[in-house]
Design a protein around this nucleic acid. Structure first.
Length: 389
DNA sequence: TCTGGGGTCCTAGGACCC
DNA sequence: TCTGGGGTCCTAGGACCC
């Protein structure tokens, strides 16, 4: 019989700020942007801020209205990452199988750890205590016989809580939940639930798999069928490598000027290209994304090339071409994004014949990467924007 | 209220090949 | 002259999660 612990740090980014700034403790802390940031959203709100109705993904503008005296902070990614690493190290002391899901949560397979740490609830108590002592952060935990239920369970007694789904109670547990607690069923699905008059999990449980599939589509229908029965979802079992890499920017004001736009595109191209160079992946497929300011609509396109992208210049040309293929001249741009699909380096695809110009350029770019990695950010070597040939 | 940024997976349809 | 069926690869868009 398997047993899983899902551990979730409470209000992570906000808690790190309160840890580093004792004067913030006990106060409403909102991470994600400063009050003047017109297009930012909340990435974490302390529990004190949540009392005002502030929650993550909410526009900062709205958070300021709800909580005008809150402490607003943009956030400190490097610090948060370091803190996350510390926490994951503690998790690793309790299980050889830690599956990190994001910066602030992980599954621990604690099957068969009883001799070392005691029963699951005792182990969880020890883990929570150690995380607090070693990192100053609190964790909420869920225990269940599969990952899907452990994940839902950890959200039930927040903050600093523990909820256990006893073996044998899986289905009963799911049926006790409101539809809003079904992980994987977001806003649109909730609307669809309402449209069909489904009010709770029992309403879904009554339906055959065939009916669910006809309403929700094959994959999601089958997922729901299993979910309301408390059965393990495949979702968390695939241990897969990266599939894509991308970067996008929302501008504080819509962009109209072509030169300005192309400069932003170049910056995004450099960012993702140098990020790609530091991985064990290559890419033959490039995609772009445009969001218009007038109606918030998003369009995108992609192209798969014969050979992997080799140089920044080449990537920039690709992205620019895709951008101009989609862009409606005259409309203001709110967001531009670009990225690629990843494949393992040196995939068995015939490498192009030696191309000395491209090879030279690639070497130059690698040396820029090396120099950049040796200097603190800001002091690093920057290169002027390339020109279209 | 007016909607970030980095990802994953699914669906439907088209092109192409056998 | 009209037109099958399966498989693979690719693309656009959407839903969802943290």
């Amino acid at each position: 019989m398997s047993y899983f612990l899902h551990a979730d740090l409470d209000a992570f980014y906000a808690s790190v700020e309160q840890l580093d700034h004792p004067e913030y403790r006990g106060k409403a802390v909102i991470v994600g942007g400063l009050p003047g940031d017109r297009r930012s959203v909340v990435s974490a709100a302390s529990y004190e801020a949540r009392k005002f109705g502030v929650h993550s993904a909410m526009p900062i503008v709205q958070a300021v209205k709800l909580c005008p005296d809150g402490i607003f902070i943009r956030g400190n990614m490097r610090r948060d990452r370091d803190k996350s690493t510390e926490v994951m190290a503690v998790f690793a002391d309790f299980s050889p199988e830690v599956q990190q899901l994001s910066v602030d949560e992980a599954f621990l397979d604690i099957t068969g750890t009883e001799k070392l740490f005691g029963p699951p609830d005792v182990l969880t108590g020890k883990l929570k205590k150690q995380v607090l002592e070693k990192t100053g952060l609190t964790v909420s935990a869920g225990l269940a016989s599969n990952k899907y239920l452990a994940k839902i369970a950890s959200g039930i007694k927040k903050p600093d809580g523990l909820f256990i789904v006893a073996p044998g109670d899986e289905e009963k547990f799911m049926l006790s939940l409101p539809l809003s607690k079904i992980w994987g069923a977001g806003e649109k699905t909730q609307e669809l639930f309402a449209k069909h008059g489904f009010k709770n999990c029992t309403d879904l449980h009554r339906l055959s798999q065939k009916i669910l599939v006809s309403i929700f589509g094959r994959a999601f229908g089958e997922f729901l069928y299993r979910a309301v029965r408390g059965q393990a979802a495949e979702t968390f079992n695939k241990e897969r490598g990266s599939r894509s890499m991308s970067a996008e920017r929302t501008f504080s004001v819509d962009l109209y000027d072509e030169f300005e736009i192309e400069t932003r595109i170049f910056n995004i191209a450099s960012e993702i290209f140098f990020r790609l160079l530091q991985t064990k992946y290559q890419s033959r497929t490039v995609f772009i994304k445009i969001r218009y300011g007038d109606d918030f609509s998003t369009v995108g396109c992609r192209e798969t090339y014969q050979n992997p992208v080799r140089t920044l210049n080449e990537l920039y040309e690709h992205i620019l071409a895709l951008f101009h293929k989609k862009f409606h001249k005259g409309r203001g741009i709110r967001l531009i994004g670009a990225g690629f699909s990843l494949e393992p380096k040196n995939a068995a695809r015939q490498t192009e014949l030696f191309d000395s110009a491209a090879e030279k350029e690639r070497k130059l770019e690698l040396s820029i990467l090396e120099i950049n990695s040796k200097f603190p950010p800001g002091a690093a070597l920057k290169r002027g924007r390339l020109l279209k040939q």
